[in-house]
Nucleic acid binder design. Structure first.
Length: 828
RNA sequence: GCCGAAGUGGCGGAACGGCAGACGCGGCGGUCUCAAAAACCGUUGGGGGUCAUUCCCCAUGUGGGUUCGAGUCCCACCUUCGGCACCA
């Protein structure tokens, strides 16, 4: 029971006490399986997914900020008549578990499952409508069995392959990383911040580049411009021409890619990346020592922290020349590390006059810098910096005089027509490197047999179980490599001795399909129960942070498209709509961190102000996509608001009520306020404007609190108005919503009620206040019937004292009427 | 450097091209109390004039522009925050 207070009227009133109601209702909802959903419903389905948490062990305020408003939105959709799937699970594989195992001697499985248990309990205090029957935990065999199954499908369809190449390796995490996980100018590890090094390793990759073009197409999804831009930028499509530079007196050629075929006549040198395979073949003996030294230095350079922003563009002449196929000129060939192995052909034509980098390089080595695209007001003098804008073609043979933009196409056509080169599209995106040299991940289901080669583990032998008794020595190789029982096996094809692949999969593999598993987590005939999958997929709305824009969100799109082509799915995109919430900051407006001491612990507020206040406050801070600073006073304000709603519904009406002069009018006014509020709240919910939605409920509550002092409370409209308030509050604050609904004598549960609908007629104003402006400044106001004619309103406006004061002695030039809003009188 | 977002009271933030500052926090004044807290009521952008209701001026990062009217649209700039990193 809550605290009892004496009201002025002498009645006993019960105060709002979240501690007394929140647990009660959560238990009841769980007992009644109120939020369990199934595909057998005649309501339209709606799959709302909020990004799953990593099993860090503590549900922090960021999780609340992501999930509580999401839950409110899901509940709103449910009340609007949808059959809403709103699941929750855990991203449970990954490094922290393994690091904890190494540091504290706890097994990653135990560490992870303990954390899951704790987080699940914390999540439950939120009072969200998660369907816990559909929970998935990615580190459990009945989940990763299917992660492995997907790997096999990719392998069978030629979308997974093994390749030896220089890859990014984090020396602290002791594993290779995908390109997406390497950040910043110093190329550091996304997780621990250590600069990565290059290692030459055999790794498994997925052919994401096959889908580069399709991944640029966002026409089937409603995703934020920001994410689309980031993915587009990441995929990095560029159109150009690829052609060969011929090496005289040999049958060797250097393929180069350029996006500026219009500048091809300005080439004065060629550059190979240090790792380019032709370097050895083309370097003359005299230059070999210097070239080797440069290559060694370049390789080491990536291992050293590269701090300088203005790196010198250096290189070494290899002693050989190449021929420009357009004009037959011989140009020297260099190796230089400003040309990258991983992009284009790893070799370029050097056009110093029209490329900043080539310009620097040519200056350093005294190479000629001929102008082939004249700037508009060019005086014929040498350039002092590269000119990269369009201009007029010069020194370019038959193409002289054309604009460089036209010449781009003409030269490309010429090259294609003469078999010199071909138009090519290059992408910056790489294939997805999924091998990790760590223990705590799904083992890659591959066996290497001396006789049969690379053999996929047959599907009926999945899962390839992680052995429990592995040593977690951080060696840079997978701990599985040192587990003999795991490593040595027999070949599934010939039965002879064989070795297992000991690397595990990138955890982004697990999160690429978890949304599918939620539809049927217990299903054991495949990753997805066909009936459930057909009904629920794809995800209608996905919300979460933007930090995965070029990782998870790109991988899962690729994964879906690949599954479609493999016949597993019949749609193109995993999530039709995406919305990114912002970041919640500390009270000092800084990112929350233990070292700053500004961390807010949600559990503390759940036990003091209650989960409902926590939820509503996080929604009230400001626009959800912008995030913002936490403010403890702010949540207290929300608590006061909920207490006032409580008192409004629960406290008895005053014994003496203020009389209402015109009851019909007062009822009509109340109805109007109610219907306008329903309209506003509904619109705001739909547009994720939770802050103004709650502001509207507060205003509505304030109105009702005043009205409660009057005889209006005897009207049937009053009851209707209170019910609407509770119904509209229920998605945001489900516990108090349920409690008040019950206390109003309404049938359980408020969360199974229909969302109130507004009536446009009843929401209509019968009087509007129109501002009277003179030359754009407000000088008076008039109340008019919204149906009044323009002439009437203008006449009234002109007659107001405020307008008269400013019109006097001047000439009225023009009068503008914005219906129902304002009149502007223009005078001179 | 390239791409993107944002600059509004003491604070978080509201504002279909139409009354800037909704709602909340904080502040101030009051009611209640022996007192305090809580709660409740009132008030609260800055400046000026007035005994005073009233009235006037200035205010949405800066400077221009479009418009009867601009926080909102256009141009330039400044600042902050994100993303990318020699991408040929």
């Amino acid at each position: 029971m809550g605290a009892l207070l004496f009201t002025p009227g002498g009645n006993m009133a019960e105060a709002y006490s979240p501690q007394d109601i929140e647990r009660k209702w959560r238990d009841r909802w769980a007992e009644d399986r109120l939020y369990n959903v199934s595909p057998t419903s005649d309501r339209p389905k709606y799959y709302y997914l909020t990004m799953l948490p990593y099993t860090s062990g503590d549900l922090h305020i960021g999780h609340w900020y992501a999930m509580a408003p999401a839950d409110a939105k899901a509940r709103f959709l449910r009340m609007q008549g949808y059959n809403v799937l709103f699941p929750m699970g855990f991203d449970a594989f990954g490094l922290p578990a393994e690091n904890a195992a190494i540091k504290r001697g706890i097994h990653p499985m135990k560490w992870t499952l303990d954390n899951v248990a704790r987080m699940r309990e914390q999540l439950k205090t939120m009072g969200a409508m998660f369907d816990w029957d559909r929970e998935m935990v990615s580190c459990l065999p009945d989940y990763y069995r299917w992660t492995q199954w997907f790997f096999l499908q990719f392998y069978k369809h030629g979308l997974a392959y093994r390749d030896r190449s220089p890859v990014d390796f984090c020396p602290v995490c002791n594993t290779t990383l995908a390109r997406e996980q390497v950040w910043g100018e110093d190329r550091h590890c996304e997780r621990c911040g250590t600069p990565v090094v290059k290692r030459d390793l055999e790794q498994w990759l997925f052919r994401m580049t096959n889908y580069a073009e399709e991944l640029l197409d966002f026409s089937k999804i409603e995703w934020p411009e920001r994410v689309r831009a980031m993915q587009t930028n990441w995929i990095g499509r560029s159109e150009g021409v690829q052609f060969d530079l011929v090496i005289p007196d040999s049958n060797l050629k250097i393929p180069v890619f350029t996006t500026r075929p219009d500048t091809v006549f300005g080439m004065t040198f060629a550059v190979l990346a240090p790792e380019h395979e032709l370097v050895d073949l083309l370097t003359i003996n005299d230059r070999a020592a210097e070239v080797d030294q440069y290559r060694v230095q370049a390789a080491r350079q990536s291992e050293v922290e590269r701090l300088s922003t203005e790196r010198e563009r250096d290189g070494v002449f290899i002693g050989t020349y190449a021929v420009n196929p357009m004009n037959g000129e011989r140009v020297p060939i260099f190796v230089a590390d400003y040309v990258l192995t991983g992009y284009g052909t790893g070799a370029i034509m050097g056009v110093p006059a029209h490329d900043t980098r080539d310009f620097d390089f040519a200056q350093r080595y005294g190479l000629p810098i001929p102008v082939v695209i004249a700037p508009p007001d060019w005086d014929g003098k040498p350039l002092t910096e590269a000119y990269v804008e369009p201009g007029t073609m010069v020194n370019s043979g038959q193409f002289d005089g054309l604009s460089s933009t036209d010449a781009w196409d003409r030269i490309a056509e010429y090259m294609e027509g003469h078999g010199i080169g071909k138009r090519t599209i290059n992408y910056r995106v790489h294939d997805w490197l999924i091998s990790r040299q760590r223990y705590w991940g799904a083992p890659i289901p591959i066996v290497y047999c001396e006789k049969c080669g690379t053999v996929p583990v047959p599907e009926d032998q999945l899962p390839v179980l992680l052995p429990e008794d592995a040593e977690f020595l951080p060696t840079g190789e997978s701990p599985l490599r040192y587990h003999e029982g795991f490593r040595y096996t027999t070949c599934p094809t010939c039965g002879g001795p064989a070795e297992r692949e000991t690397d595990t999969m990138d955890t982004f593999m697990c999160s690429s399909w978890y949304h599918m598993r939620y539809t049927s987590p217990g299903y054991d005939q495949g990753p997805i129960d066909p009936v459930e999958g057909k009904y629920w997929l794809p995800v209608d709305l996905y919300t979460g942070g933007i930090e995965h824009a070029t990782m998870h969100l790109l991988y899962t799109r690729f994964f879906t498209k690949a599954c479609r082509d493999m016949g597993i799915l019949d749609f193109d995109e995993p999530m039709l709509r995406l919305y990114n919430q912002g970041i919640i900051l500390g009270e000092d407006n800084e990112k929350m961190s233990k070292s700053r001491g500004n961390v807010v612990n949600p559990d503390d507020f759940v036990s003091s102000t209650g989960a409902d206040s926590m939820r509503a406050y996080l929604m009230f801070i400001g626009p959800w996509d912008e995030g913002g600073p936490w403010n403890t006073r702010g949540i207290e304000g929300i608590y006061r608001f909920l207490s006032r709603v409580w008192a409004l519904v629960v406290d008895p009406t005053p014994e003496t009520l203020e009389p209402v002069a015109d009851m019909a009018r007062a009822e009509r006014d109340l109805q109007r306020v109610m219907h306008k509020t329903i309209r506003k709240v509904t619109d705001d919910f739909e547009a994720f404007r939770f802050n103004t939605m709650l502001a509207a409920l507060m205003e509505y509550n304030n109105y009702l609190v005043k009205a409660k002092q009057t005889a209006l409370t005897r009207s049937p409209v009053w009851q209707e108005a209170l019910e609407a308030l509770v119904l509209m509050l229920a998605p945001s604050c489900p516990h108090i919503g349920e409690e008040l609904w019950e206390r109003m004598g309404k049938p359980y549960s408020v969360h199974q009620q229909e969302w109130p609908v507004w009536n446009e007629e009843l929401a209509k104003d019968d009087v509007v206040t129109v501002a009277v402006q003179v030359n754009g400044r407000v000088r008076d106001r008039i109340d008019v019937d919204p149906e009044s004619s323009e002439d009437e309103v203008q006449a009234l406006a002109l007659a107001t004292p405020g307008a008269q004061r400013h019109i006097e002695g001047k000439q009225v030039v023009k009068v503008i009427y914005a219906p129902g809003r304002l009149v502007n009188i223009v005078v001179r």
